[in-house]
Simulated scan of single mutants.
Amino acid sequence: MTATPIYRAFALGLFRSSVFFICAVVAFSQREDRTGTILLMIVFLLDVASYQIVQVVTISNESVYARVWADTLTNRLFYEKLFEKIRVREYVDVDALFKEARKSSAADVKLFLKDTTVWSEWGGFKQTLAGIWSFLWLWISYGIFYGIAGWMGTAMRSSF
């Protein structure tokens, strides 16, 4: 599994946003209010649904990647410990080595997340605040996005 290059992710996001923006402007520019409202609701619902689908795919891909990362690290640590024991001709307990490797990999992942992310050690209250901010930001950003589209569509309506 290879990650999508960042330029393609930005291009896809920009394309998706521009398509929904153009559709929203067209919906706002309709002279008949009922038609404009129906079109705008369809565009808005498709926009929200497509955004949520992208989020579900992203979250599921991240969870798969996290498991692969932990398993790969565990296997690497297991084989390092195994070869070390073979090199010194020590008794090898495979189950104990896997348990030790799993603990070491979990500690390495936790240390990596602590060093590279802000949210890794946030407690429940901070995570709740981040979730509330995320929710509010979605409403604010969608309001700005569709507000500008509405302003442009209404301006286009008066020019036709």
Rank of each mutant, 00 (worst) to 15 (best):
R16D: 02
R16H: 04
S17L: 09
S17F: 09
S17E: 06
S18A: 11
S18T: 06
V19E: 03
F20N: 02
I22H: 02
I22D: 02
C23D: 00
A27L: 00
A27E: 01
F28E: 07
S29F: 03
E32S: 07
D33P: 00
D33I: 09
L40F: 04
I42W: 01
I42K: 00
I42A: 03
I42C: 01
I42M: 02
V43W: 03
L46C: 01
L46W: 00
L46M: 02
V48Q: 02
V48A: 07
A49K: 00
S50Q: 07
Y51Q: 07
Q52G: 13
I53S: 09
I53C: 09
V54F: 13
Q55F: 13
V57Y: 14
V57D: 12
V57E: 14
T58D: 08
T58S: 07
T58C: 08
I59P: 05
S60D: 10
N61A: 11
E62I: 15
E62P: 09
E62R: 14
S63H: 14
S63C: 13
Y65I: 15
A66I: 11
V68N: 08
V68I: 15
W69M: 12
W69Y: 14
W69E: 12
W69D: 12
W69H: 13
A70W: 04
A70D: 06
A70V: 12
D71Y: 03
T72L: 07
T72N: 11
L73S: 10
L73T: 10
T74R: 03
T74K: 03
T74S: 08
N75V: 09
R76S: 04
L77W: 10
F78E: 02
K81N: 10
L82F: 14
F83C: 07
K85H: 06
I86D: 05
V88F: 01
R89Y: 06
V92D: 04
D93F: 05
V94I: 14
V94Q: 09
D95S: 11
D95C: 06
D95G: 14
D95A: 13
L97I: 02
F98Q: 12
K99A: 15
K99E: 13
K99F: 13
E100G: 12
A101I: 03
R102M: 05
R102D: 07
S104T: 06
S105D: 01
S105M: 03
A107F: 09
A107P: 00
A107Q: 10
D108H: 02
V109N: 06
K110A: 11
K110E: 08
F112M: 01
F112T: 03
F112S: 00
L113T: 10
L113C: 06
K114F: 08
T116R: 11
T117S: 02
T117H: 08
T117R: 08
W119S: 05
W119E: 01
W119N: 05
S120N: 04
E121V: 09
E121R: 08
W122N: 04
G123M: 12
G123W: 13
G123S: 11
G124A: 15
G124E: 14
K126I: 15
K126H: 14
Q127T: 15
T128M: 14
T128F: 15
T128H: 11
L129W: 11
L129C: 10
A130S: 12
G131M: 04
